[in-house]
Each structure stands twice: as C-alpha cells, then as structure tokens.
Nucleic acid binder design. Structure first.
Length: 569
RNA sequence: GUGCCUAUAGUUUAGCUGGAUAGAAUGCAAGGCUACGAACUUUGAGAUCGGGGGUUCGAAUCCCUCUAGGCACACCA
C-alpha cells in the first residue's frame, strides 16, 4: 500500500534539505479532519532557519515536488502545512489490499527473527486467580501479534514449580495431608494447606527452617519429596489447563523453574570465573552498586540451595542457546521490576553475545487489587479466574435469553461473549495502571467493551447474510464511498498495520483494543447513517463491500487479542 | 529512608517522540425501533489535566519541587 506519510516526508525533506527521518518525526495527523489528512508544523524549523513559521510553510509549499495523484491539495494554516490526500486512491488501495490479502495487516517483516515470550507462569499448587489474568492475556496477545507480523515466536509458561514454597507445601502435607482428599478440587486444598503452614512459619522460625530444609532435600532428589512434588505439579497443570482451554491460551513450552534445576551450576561456575561472585553472610552474591542498583543479586543461598534469580539466569542461558532469541520478553507485574533489573545486569556477565543481553525485556503491568485490599493466596483473599468466567458467561446467557431467545448454540455464544468480555477488559487500558477489581465492570456489556465489538461484527455478518453475495473489488464504484462515515472506516482500516506495529513497539496490546473500539464505533455510525441495502445497486455494492472488509478486520483484530467472534448473538 | 511507577469529568479512561477547540465510555437528563439486529444511536450537562514553579512561539505531554497512592529494597517468587 502507498505510504502517504512517507511520500510527504520525502517531499518536504527534499524541499528543505533536512533528513527524511527528522521530517517524518514532525509530521502529524490532525485531530480535526478539516485540517487535512497529514500536517507539518513549521514551528520547529523556525529557530534553525531563522524565519517565521508561515514564511517557511509558504516556501516549502512553493518548492515541494509531490505526486499530485497522491496528494491532491496542500494548504497553509498559520504555521502548519496541511496535506489532503487523494481519497479515491486511498479507498482503492485499502479495499484492494483487503480483498487480496487473506491476512490483512500481516507482514513478513519479522521473518528470521526469534521472539521468546514468558507469560502466565502461575505457581503450582496455588489457585489461578485474577491476578494472573493480565500476564496470561497480555502475553497471549503479544504472542499472536508478533506471529502475525512474521516473527518466529516461542511462548513459554515458566511455571513456578520450584523453590522454598514447595518446602513449605511438603511440610504442610506431611503434617496434615491425610486430612485432605486431593482427588476433588486439589488446588483449593493445597492452597489451604499452604495457608496453614504459612501461619505456622510466621509463628515459629524453626518450622520455616524445616521448610527450607525440605526444599534443599527436593533439590537433592530426595525420593519422598520428589514424589509429592510431582503429584502437586501434575494436579495443578490439569487444573490450569481448564482455564487455558477457556481462554484459548497456548504455549510452546512448559519448562518451569524446576526444569533449570540441573542448569544452575553452570551459571554459578561462569559467574565465579568473572570474579564478581562474592561471599556475603554465607550467600553468594553479585554486587550491583556500581550499576546503580543498591540491592545485590543473590545467586546462591547460605544453605547452598539456589534461588529464583539463579534459575532465571539459567533460563536466559538456555533460551539464548535453544531459541537464539532476538527478544526475550517477560510479562509480569511491576512488583518484579527490581528482580529483572538485577538479573538482566547479571546476565551480562554470563559471556553471552550482546544480541541476547540487549534483547531482554521486562514487560511490566499494574497490580490488580480487590476492594478489600491486595490479593493474597496466603491469606485466602482472591477471586478465581474460573469463578469470574462463570459469572460473565452466566450474565451473557441471561442477556441472550432476554434479547435473542431463539438463538441457536446459546451456550457457545454465551461463552464467547462472557470470556471475550473478560479478556478485553484486561487488555483495554494501558498495562502499567493498577486496577481495583470490580465485578460490575466485567459484567457491563455496553459501551467500550468486547460485546460491543462482537455486536458490531454480528451486524456486519447479518447484513452480508441478507444480501447473499459479496461483490468483487473490481466492480466497486469508489465514488460511492465518499461520504464521511465511509471515509472514517477506510482511514481506520488503512491504519491497521500501523497499529499492530505500535503494539509490538511498546508491547502494549491496549493500542489494538482501543483501535477495535474505534473501528466498531465508526461502523455503527456508518450503519446508522447510511442505508446499506438500498435501491441503488451501485451504492449498495460499495457499502456491502465496505461492510465485508470492516467485519474482516474486526474479526482478525479480535482474534489477535485472543477473542473469538460469534456469527450471531 | 532510597529507588521505580501512577495521578486527566461522579466513575473507568484516551491523548503518538511538546502542536490547532483535552477525546471517549459509564452514570445522570432528554430523544430515536412496522427499519440492514436498540448489546445500537442522537443531544445535553459534567475537566482549575493532583498543587506550585520553570523551559518554549506553544506544555496534560519535557525539567524541578511539593502532595497523595502503589510497588520494591539479600537468602519468597
């Protein structure tokens, strides 16, 4: 497709002898369409050129050489130069591309590049609660979008299946295990045991030390410890998988922390050789104060066992070798900011190529809190994902019964709507912001929500079904799409690829979420203002075609977020 | 205490590396279905962009400072 911004940038660059890159950075899209499709503010050049902005604007306008077929009009407004593109050309470009390309907006720019995404990564034997939703859906969306842009992506569920917490769990299981029947709701029961042992640990330091000892035994492959650990792990994965099935989350690897158990010695060896690994209070640490990080990174605890940092470092080594990653992304809450700062710094000492250490990226998201305070598995203050999804699916069912009682596959549709609402809600705002969980917000299916997007999509399907056949692009009369409502849609569809690029540039799926809302809104307006099925066959065909393309982009965009569209609802 | 993050209508928020009149949604008030689906849409009221300085032709956006909240700060992950 024609890159109009680029065309303008090249033109201005030549006219001013300023680098294309700099010019492109200045070009903006006016908020008010009356000011054109692209604008160039000349204020920034005023200082260097020592001329008033309107004078510069005039000079550029005089000098600029630009394909008149692409840019139809250039106007000066104060210090701005406003560019008006050839609308018909834009329509033609967008519609043709959307017809020819089954995966509209996809690209090959990521070909040959490997991306590793570490997401979801729940802790074994703990309930899968709404605090894990963001990492799961953000990671899932990034996974889809990188892939769509041609990258080779590996999704890893770095299970929290190791560490002192298992020492605790084993201790609790030893003490009270026989009181629990783990064949039913095993996680709830393990969580209960975990809560109990934590209370005991708080009261009695000796118990805590016994837990640490249990973990040491597990590391040394003590038979009993390994047996129960394995049992907990299998039970947990089975439970997690139920949620992943509902959310449509997929992973290429389930290598959790335990997987790196036999790979941590190498990390310690390498670090020892650098001379940066020093003993402190019996533990082995890397001092990072010269890197502006006050807290040292512990690599080996005083009792000789490893710590999460050690396993994360081993994972970096392993992933670099196994996946040859260009980027390795960690999707976790910002609680772990310091941790990743530390291990990314220590990773530079592992003798890896700079490519890898530069590719490490922590994608942090905000905390989810309950109205009653911070969620805590230990204290039993949490909402399970399973229960939340049950609620939203139920709500969707109720609305279907009320609005569309004759709908077929009610359950299937309710699932898509209810689950979609939850996924979308978690992807709709900037990921850094904290959130106070509000069930009513999840159950609201009006306004800027996923059901709104789905509803809009369903309307496109409904119109298309009524007409039966979708016309071919070559038969479309482009002038029939010159009204502002059609134009809005076309502009948005033109931007789709740019939106996807923005998403991966910032690892921010909410950009796509908001885009889909905008597109759905633009279509709703178009739909309300224009009769699609009408007497004029020429206009009808053009509008049907636009409806078809809009539906296609809505569906594809939602799919990239991990949301399925119903055909009817 | 130190470091990092956040602060925009009652509420949830958008605002691209500074740019033209700060956009939405929700809630509230009033309108629109014998219509291609009203889970929609139209109109209205509602914002000292946390406070105060500064840089700039221009600041919600950059810098300083203060306030409020969150997170982290060595053997948890």
């Amino acid at each position: 497709m024609i890159n109009f911004k680029q065309e303008i940038g090249v033109g201005i660059s030549k006219a001013t002898n300023i680098s294309e890159e700099e010019i492109l950075g200045y070009i903006e899209i006016p908020k008010d369409k009356a000011n054109g499709d692209y604008a160039f503010p000349c204020f920034k050049l005023a200082k260097t050129l020592k001329k008033a902005p309107p004078v510069i604007a005039n000079e550029i306008k005089e000098k600029i050489e630009i394909d008149e077929n692409k840019i139809q009009k250039i106007e000066i407004a104060g210090g701005y130069i406003n560019f008006y593109i050839n609308k018909n050309l834009l329509i033609k470009e967008v519609l043709e591309e959307a017809e020819n390309n089954e995966y509209y907006g996809s690209s090959t720019e990521g070909n040959g590049k490997n991306i590793v995404i570490d997401y979801s990564s729940p802790n074994i034997a703990k309930p899968f609660h709404i605090g894990h939703l963001k990492t799961t859906v953000i990671g899932g969306a990034l996974y889809n979008i990188y892939k769509y842009l041609g990258y080779n992506v590996t999704g890893i569920n770095h299970l929290g299946d190791y560490g002192t917490q298992f020492g605790k769990l084993i201790e609790g299981y030893k003490r009270w295990g026989k009181d629990y029947d783990l064949t039913q709701n095993p996680i709830d029961k393990l969580a209960e045991i975990y809560q109990k042992i934590n209370i005991l640990c708080k009261e009695d330091e000796k118990v805590l030390n016994q837990c640490r000892e249990n973990f040491r035994l597990l590391e040394q492959k003590d038979e009993y410890s390994v047996k129960v650990w394995k049992e907990f792990r299998d039970l947990s994965i089975k439970e997690f998988q139920k949620i992943y099935d509902l959310l449509g989350t997929k992973f290429d690897s389930w290598n959790g922390e335990a997987f790196y158990e036999d790979k941590t010695d190498e990390v310690i060896d390498i670090l020892k050789k650098t001379g940066k690994l020093v003993e402190s209070d019996g533990a082995l640490i890397v001092d990072l104060s010269d890197k502006g990080i006050d807290t040292p990174c512990i690599v080996c605890k005083s009792n000789g066992s490893t710590i999460y940092a050690t396993r994360d470092l081993a994972a970096i080594l392993y992933r670099a070798r196994t996946y040859d990653f260009d980027k390795c992304i960690y999707v976790t809450s910002y609680e772990q900011n310091l941790h990743f700062k530390q291990i990314f710094e220590v990773a530079k000492l592992l003798g890896l190529d700079e490519k890898y250490t530069k590719g490490l990226e922590h994608v942090a998201y905000g905390m989810v809190r309950l109205p009653t305070g911070k969620m805590s598995t230990r204290e039993g203050n949490f909402v399970k994902i399973e229960d939340l999804l049950k609620d939203t699916i139920k709500r969707a069912s109720e609305i279907i019964l009320e609005k569309n009682p004759n709908l077929e596959n009610k359950e299937e549709v309710a699932k898509k709507v209810g689950i979609g609402a939850v996924i979308f809600n978690n992807l709709a705002t900037s990921r850094v912001k904290d959130e106070i969980f509000d069930i009513n917000e999840m159950l609201n299916f009006q306004g800027e929500t996923d059901p709104y997007i789905q509803y809009t999509y369903v309307r496109t399907k409904s119109v298309l079904e009524k007409v039966g056949t979708i016309p071919k692009f070559k038969d479309i009369n482009i002038d029939s799409l010159n009204d502002e409502y059609s134009q809005n849609i076309i502009n948005l569809i033109y931007n789709f690829k740019d939106i996807l690029n923005q998403v991966i540039e910032k690892n921010e799926p909410s950009i796509l979420s908001r885009y889909l809302i905008d597109l759905a809104k633009a279509f709703s307006l178009f739909y309300n203002e224009n009769k699609i099925i009408c007497d004029d066959k020429m206009i009808q065909d053009a509008r049907i075609y636009l409806t078809y393309i809009t539906g296609k982009v809505l569906k594809q965009g939602a799919l990239l977020l991990g949301i399925e569209m119903p055909n009817k609802m």
